[in-house]
């Protein structure tokens, strides 16, 4: 391959075009497959990008240089989550007492179980730091993991598996415990399954969706506040 061709393949804008193209293709394939919960569009898109990088022999660092430009937008996009959060504030005002107890406990437990199990099975600190924010929505979780000194790629895989697992378990346990209250199912989906759970909650109904996005955002903020402090105290 000529040098000119290699330069063209490693241009940051090619990474950006590849990412956007793969994401759009992932969305379309996802709908074609009948929107399977176990295989979100992000996963399809990521597999497509990995395949293309391998086929075109684009080195991973070259792709990452371009993708970093895209991921820079995660900053303002995280701040933008304040808009849906504020729009759900009336639920918080109406139910502030149970939420004040439930949400901190539930989000602390989600992180605690993950750390305790991995620690008991002998995982090193790098892995613990990458697993701890597994129930937090990706943009916030990435911030937490880099604060703790974990690995962002391992975190991303963990988020994906957790989202799919949470969606499955809420459906199964909800049926088993005879829970039909949309607010409850929505909160459980948002607190444990971040964005993947929230998408499922919107399929159940608008109330479940609203409570899921509320649970997701508040879990993210609470975990971002509590986890790094707890980590510093424990370390």
């Amino acid at each position: 391959m000529s040098q000119a061709m290699a330069d063209w393949l490693q241009h940051p804008l090619l990474s950006i075009a590849l990412s956007i193209g793969a994401y759009l293709a992932g969305l379309r394939l996802f709908q074609r497959l009948g929107s399977p919960g176990w295989c979100p569009p992000v996963l399809i898109a990521a597999l497509l990008v990995a395949l293309l990088l391998w086929l075109l022999r684009i080195p991973w660092p070259a792709y990452q240089r371009g993708a970093d430009w895209l991921m820079l937008l995660l900053g303002p996009a995280t701040v933008a989550l304040a808009v849906p959060l504020y729009q759900q504030m009336h639920h918080v005002r109406a139910l502030w007492r149970p939420l004040l107890v439930c949400l901190p406990v539930a989000s602390a437990l989600a992180a605690f179980y993950a750390i305790a199990i991995a620690w008991a099975l002998g995982a090193p600190p790098l892995l613990l730091a990458s697993l701890a924010p597994k129930s937090v929505t990706a943009p916030i979780a990435m911030g937490i993991t880099s604060t703790l000194g974990g690995s962002i790629p391992i975190l991303m895989g963990s988020l994906l598996i957790t989202g799919v697992a949470a969606t499955t378990f809420v459906t199964l346990l909800g049926r088993w415990m005879h829970i039909e209250d949309e607010r409850l199912l929505g909160l459980a989906l948002g607190v444990n399954g971040h964005a993947i759970g929230t998408v499922r909650a919107f399929e159940i109904g608008p109330t479940a969706g609203a409570f899921a996005s509320l649970g997701m955002t508040l879990t993210g903020v609470l975990t971002a506040l509590m986890l790094p402090l707890a980590w510093h105290l424990a370390a």
């Binding site: 990474s15 990412s19 956007i20 793969a22 994401y23 979100p40 569009p41 992000v42 996963l43 898109a45 990521a46 990008v49 990995a50 990088l53 991973w60 792709y63 990452q64 993708a67 970093d68 895209l70 991921m71 937008l73 995660l74 303002p76 996009a77 933008a80 989550l81 304040a82 808009v83 849906p84 990706a138 943009p139 990435m142 690995s151 962002i152 790629p153 391992i154 975190l155 991303m156 895989g157 994906l160 964005a195």
Partner: peptide, 24 residues
């Protein structure tokens, strides 16, 4: 107005991180 498109793009913005899984 600016939040809506950014939030809709969130999944795409985190996607490069998911690609990294295969590297680690």
């Amino acid at each position: 107005k600016a939040s809506q498109p950014l939030i809709m793009m969130l999944a795409m913005l985190i996607m490069p991180g998911v690609v990294g899984v295969f590297q680690v």
